[in-house]
């Protein structure tokens, strides 16, 4: 158990959403209203606000284009908005769930530029120009993705609320490692909490998908 805290996902959430990116995101919007660590950082930013693509954005809504599941989608967002909120509320892609609001549960996991990301910890503005995959993109036609088939076959789900995020983490693992070991599956899903306790069946599902699919 305890060693789980030491496990870093290779290319996982922490690297994709660094504090630097987060502060930068705040910098272009409204630094003053958010209390975050790094007070010195913030005061520097207040004096020298960094530029996002050469111009200041916010606080009013701006029109942005996001590339989601291979489609370019235009939407209007306030710069403070997280990618999770924009996916759900603006683009009505409600397959992505919000479980903890602070990157601790993994329910909102999506794939951005080939890495798993907590969309609740990612500003929508930071997703501009990145290729984004959500659960809705896994099986655009009737045919399910092999990892979806395998989750069904091995009963890797109960209430379903963690399932989207869990599947995105597993899908990303299989993309880069078609035949993972149990330990690699655990590392890949270590950021996804399932309160129903389906972990053993998730392991079965991913290992089987690895074997069958590749």
């Amino acid at each position: 158990m305890s060693n789980s805290q030491d496990k870093k996902k290779p290319g996982g959430k922490s690297s994709a959403m660094s504090r630097r990116n987060f502060i930068k995101g705040l910098g272009v919007t409204s630094v003053g209203v958010v209390a975050t660590p790094g007070v010195e950082f913030l005061s520097t930013l207040r004096q020298n606000p960094p530029l996002a693509q050469g111009k200041l954005l916010g606080p009013d809504a701006v029109t942005i284009t996001l590339e989601i599941n291979g489609k370019k989608l235009q939407t209007s967002v306030e710069p403070r908005m997280t990618l999770a909120d924009v996916l759900r509320d603006q683009l009505h892609l409600t397959g992505t769930k919000i479980g903890c609001d602070r990157g601790a549960c993994g329910a909102c996991t999506i794939i951005m530029a080939g890495k798993t990301v907590s969309s609740c910890m990612t500003l929508a503005l930071d997703a501009i120009g990145q290729s984004i995959e959500t659960i809705e993109g896994l099986s655009p036609a009737e045919k399910l993705h092999e990892i979806q088939e395998s989750f069904i076959e091995h009963d890797g789900l109960q209430c379903g609320f963690c399932t989207s995020g869990m599947i995105m983490s597993c899908k990303n693992l299989l993309d880069s490692n078609p035949n993972p070991s149990l330990q690699q599956v655990k590392v890949a899903t270590s950021g996804n909490l399932c309160r129903c306790g389906t972990y053993p069946k998730v392991f079965d599902a991913v290992l089987a998908a690895g074997r069958d699919g590749h």
Partner: peptide, 22 residues
Amino acid sequence: MKHIDAAAHTRGESQYVDDSPQ
């Protein structure tokens, strides 16, 4: 018999309270 909601869950299509159209 598999979980009746399994396919919808894995596609992110299962609707919870705030997933149905507003």
